[in-house]
Write a protein that binds this DNA or RNA. Structure first.
Length: 593
RNA sequence: GGUCUCGUAGCUCAGCUGGAUAGAGCAACAGCCUUCUAAGCUGUCGGUCAUGGGUUCGAAUCCCGUCGAGAUCACCA
């Protein structure tokens, strides 16, 4: 049962009984702020025209009526124009029973909508870095949240496995390498390939410098550097499916995928579909033809195809090169079209950094102009801000990139050190110690990144993120582990906490029940705004509240069996909700730590 | 220059479909471990919500201007 709907119906009935039929006046009900007495608050300002009385008098009148006529309303108080209603504790007991009986609490009924979430989308010439971590965590979490909202979700990864950048790694491996492989070097495949990408850049820069000392301009030198010419030649050979180049490309990409899989697994993300750009880069050309026929696009004398978006406040955009080859936009048009067609999608969400805001603005506009407004309106660019480091911004060209694997390892390592220092690992087997360190280290990382509004540029301070106090993943994990420990001890002691409890709720317990009931709305809000941070904030709030409660009330040692039963049930429910919330964030929740 | 995003406590962030005295955590300070996990709990300190206008009974929230930060405007992806 939806409490706010229930209340607003009760309010409408009462207000109409007092003042006659309403004509579209807003009924505003919100949670009562914790510094005031009450559970829910009616804002009476919008009703003043109707009551023709002061805010205080109106609130008092409605309050009296409701206390007398709505059995669930136990008490009320009025502060300024705000009517605070306190609900009967039987009402909360019933809500709790409802939640406890619902095995799928938080899972919305199926919506019948199919949503594709594309995220990760790495290049195959170098390992993943901190920016990818934000992307992966966001994409995965948003997908899980959408599932919880009842949608059918397809997680997709579009791998950029072709282009000049991959040829650079391949060329450097051939020219400067000694035939090493992940197996022979002991390096993770993506790191090995990334190493040669850097190697290419070193030689390339050296050659530019050389040509410039020989008198060439910088631009000329960049074009004429022999390694660059060779890389371009390699790309041509790749496109012609030259067996040698193609074979090497397959081998090296294979190494990279093995490496990526390790990272994805560590992050706990997965995909339903993997697309490869080498297989989709030719898509979209027929759409361009169609656009030309419809007069949406135009051809320039050099044979290139453009769209003029100046009337929409944007620029002119290239869609097909003079030589007939496609560009990024062409491909994206093609893949979007195909995805909607093939999967009968209702929504398509791209998790891509905000440096591509313009690209997606244009993409949506073009799709609309091509005559598919129903698709255009259902494409969402889930744009996220850059992750900055204390020293400056992350740019792959500068040396300050934080490698994803290194970062994960560092988090786990630090978690282990801190756990050991606090004596949390005493008596653990090596295996258990590893499990705790991994869970805690990754929980810290994931929560730290997901708790920030995606749109915002965020600051990632590795040292600070490893502070496990306060609003952090480990705090939430810790709370869950504590609750599980209580429940285990209760079972060991043979305490029976099944069946309905008849004890009365205390105010703190009602607060917990109230917070529990808010879980579905938090999940819905997070889904609507593509903001895992909303779920994060909710789970933190619940954990914090429980910690305070746990501190003030003994649960196992409570002497009254009914009260103890009730408290145990409450604790069990809190742990269930924490667990399902954390799952939506992709964060593992330990049974003990 | 055009377009878009952001600006809230010393720091990192919530709050934004308009509602009460703007919230957390960190840092600082003061307490709390014979107690179900102290990775915890309680308290103190800390804010002209960048700034100036406007709309409103009411604005951190909506609109306009200004300042500041970032992204983008490629025959790259």
């Amino acid at each position: 049962m939806n409490i706010e709907n229930f209340l607003s119906e009760a309010v409408i009935r009462s207000v109409e009984a007092l003042y006659g039929q309403l004509e579209g006046e807003q009924i505003q009900i919100q949670k009562t702020r914790k510094e005031f007495e009450g559970d829910y608050t009616l804002v009476t300002f919008p009703l003043l025209k109707r009551s023709r009385k002061s805010p205080e008098a109106t609130a008092a009148e409605i309050g009296e009526y409701m206390a007398a006529n709505v059995p669930e309303v136990k008490a009320f108080n009025v502060i300024k124009g705000f009517l605070n209603l306190t609900l009967d504790s039987n009402f909360w007991a019933a809500r709790f029973a409802e939640i406890a009986a619902d095995a799928d609490f938080g899972q919305a009924p199926t919506s019948g909508r199919t949503v594709m979430v594309e995220y990760s989308s790495p290049n195959t010439n170098k390992p993943l870095h901190l920016g990818h971590i934000r992307n992966n965590l966001l994409g995965y979490s948003v997908a899980e949240i959408l599932k919880a909202n009842g949608h059918k979700v397809i997680k997709a990864n579009l791998v950029n496995d072709r282009g000049i950048h991959i040829c650079k790694s391949m060329l450097a491996w051939k020219l400067y390498g000694n035939g090493e492989t992940p197996a022979s070097s002991g390096m993770k495949g993506d790191h090995l390939v990334g190493k040669y990408y850097v190697e290419f850049d070193k030689h390339y820069k050296a050659e530019i410098k050389e040509l410039m000392t020989a008198g060439q301009s910088e631009d000329d030198a960049k074009k004429n550097a022999p390694v660059m010419l060779q890389a371009q030649e390699m790309l041509r050979r790749w496109e012609a499916r030259d067996p040698e180049v193609y074979g090497l490309w397959e081998t090296m990409n294979g190494w990279v995928y093995e490496g990526f899989d390790v990272t994805y697994k560590a992050l706990g993300v997965d995909f339903d579909k993997i697309y490869y750009e080498s297989q989709t880069y030719l898509l979209g050309k027929s759409l361009v033809e169609e656009g030309l026929r419809k007069g949406v696009f135009y051809r320039r004398p050099d044979n290139s195809v453009w769209i003029d978006l100046t009337a929409d406040g944007l620029d002119e955009k290239l869609l097909l090169r003079g030589d007939g080859t496609s560009v990024y936009m062409t491909q994206d048009l093609g893949t979007a079209y195909r995805r909607f067609e093939d999967n009968k999608l209702d929504d398509l969400i791209y998790v891509v950094g905000n440096e591509q805001n313009y690209h997606f603005q244009v993409l949506k506009l073009i799709i609309k102009k091509l005559g598919f407004p129903e698709w255009s309106d259902h494409i969402t660019h889930l744009s996220y801000g850059m992750v900055e480091l204390p020293e400056g911004k992350m740019k792959s060209r500068e040396g300050t990139v934080v490698d994803a694997d290194d970062l994960i390892e560092g988090m786990v390592q630090t978690a282990r050190e801190m756990s050991a220092e606090l004596g949390k690992l005493d008596g653990c087997t090596e295996e258990e110690a590893n499990a705790v360190s991994t869970t805690v280290g990754l929980g810290a990382l994931k929560y730290f990144i997901l708790k920030v509004d995606p749109r915002k540029t965020m600051l990632f301070d590795p040292r600070e993120s490893i502070d496990f106090n306060g609003n952090t993943g480990p705090f939430i994990q810790y709370t869950h582990a504590r609750i599980r420990s209580i429940l285990r001890k209760a079972v060991e002691a043979g305490i029976d906490f099944g069946g309905a409890a008849s004890a009365e709720y205390l105010p703190e317990e009602i607060e917990l029940v109230k917070t529990l009931t808010e879980y579905p709305s938090a999940v819905a809000a997070a889904g609507e705004n593509f903001a895992p941070s909303v779920v994060g904030a909710y789970v933190y709030e619940l954990a914090k509240q429980f910690n305070g409660y746990y501190h003030d009330h003994s649960i196992l040692k409570e002497e009254n069996a009914e009260v103890r039963r009730m408290r145990l049930q409450l604790a069990g429910q809190v742990s269930r909700v924490i667990r399902s919330g954390m799952k939506l964030l992709g964060i593992e929740v330990p049974e003990r730590m």
